[in-house]
Structure formats: C-alpha cells, structure tokens
Amino acid sequence: MKKNIVLSVENLHVQLGKRMINKNISINVKEGEIVGIIGPNGCGKTTFFNAISGFAPIDTGLISINGEEVNNFTPHQRARKGLSRGFQNVGVFKEMTLEENIIMAIEQAEQLPWYWMFSRQEKKRVEKRVDTILDDVDLLSHKQSLAGLLSGGQLRLLEMAKLHALGGSLVLIDEPTAGVSPVLRGELRNAIAQLAKKHGRTILIIEHDLKFLFDLVDRVVVLVDGKKYMEGKPKEVQNDARLREVYFGT
C-alpha cells in the first residue's frame, strides 16, 4: 500500500546570525515511519527541528506537512496542522500536575469548549482518557503530583504521554534519552514504538545513543556540518567508514 508523505523538506537553508546552520537539506518522511537524525554536536540537528516546527526562520527552502506548505505558518499554526514537538529541555509544565499536563494536551487535540469541565459526562470521559494515557507510561500513580517532582526519566515519559495525547500525524522528539537511566530507556523505547506502530504517528528522533536509536528506527539521516551526509537503513549507516571516523573518531 502506497504511503503518504507526511513531511517534505526541500533544499532547506537556515542561517542564524552570520552562520549557515542547515545547508541544502532535503528529506521526505512517509506515514508511520520512524526516522532517526544523528550527527556530531553542533551539526544543526535541533536547528533542523526548529525550522520544521517554526521556531527558527528559514532562509530558503520549502517545508510541507501532509502536503501543505507551512513556511509562513507560526509554530502554533504548524502544531494545529498536526505537528507535535518534544524539546531537549523537556516540554512539560513542571508547575502543573501530570493530570493537568495531559488534560491540556487533550483539550488542544479535541478542541474542547471552555465549559467542558462542568459537564459530568465529558469530565468522566476525559479523566478516563488521562488515566489510560498515564497508565501506558507507568505514571498513573503520580497523576496528582506536580510534574516538577518527577525524575528526568519520568519527565521524558510524561513528555511521550503528552505527545500521544496531543494527537497529530507528525512527532518530533529531541534527545529523549538525555538524563534517562538504562532501566527507563526500555520503557521510553516502547512508548515511542507504540506511538508509531499502534497509533500510526510519523516520528523523527534526534538521538546520540545510537544503540537505542538503531533498534527503533526504520531509517537514519546523518547530518554533518549542517549538510545531509547520508541517509539509509541503520545497518548501512553503521557500516559507513567515513561516518565512523566523523562520529566515533575511529
């Protein structure tokens, strides 16, 4: 079955200050794919995500989400077009409870009216949904806790739960394993895999833990010095000699 292209990036150039950070990057991502973005520090991975999500201005190039050009869309407009974004410094609200964080995501995803909390039926339905989503990431017992009291790994899991609740066809995840213990990495991997396989989301992940990434993704894009160096299946990328020299120094 032919899959739709969810994200199309053509000849992307992003300049910040006097420095060209992303140089002529083109990539197409199909529905349901999990694509890994790797590269040395400072090669422009997060800037690439910022450009896709509207947080960095584009010099030249074209970005389309679900066939619609989004170059002139603000970040919140792109989010409404089906783009969900995770952040390096974790994009959850630490002064709210876990429940409130997920409720916010559900409210946005379903465009609930302002008075929904005063409808008993609606409140029950949303509460049930919150419980299911938090249970999926093993955080149900912390539902009423402030997010700021969670550990680093638990915050990442909460972010996955939030991305799930937000819906959207395209999910960008930035270094999900940063500060996460090996035990929780397994849960994180499962959460991400579930988003794609069970809920049909298309996912791009920036990650430095190559073992974590290569077990998860369908395809890898390598950025070096702001340019797309290569693209291919995890095994192909792993065996590339020049990449081993650039990335691992071997």
Binding site: S53, G54, F55, T74, P75, H76, A79, R80, S84, R85, F87, G91, V92, F93, K94, E95, M96, M104, A105, Q108, L166
Partner: peptide, 16 residues
C-alpha cells in the same frame, strides 16, 4: 499558567 512557565512549549501545544 503554561505561558508563564514555558511559552515555547505552549506554542508547540498549538496555542497562540
């Protein structure tokens, strides 16, 4: 409340 804490994440939620 989200605006005070993390306005960038709020935008990523689709909120202007």
């Amino acid at each position: 409340r989200a605006f005070k804490e993390h306005p960038v994440a709020l935008q990523a939620f689709g909120v202007s």
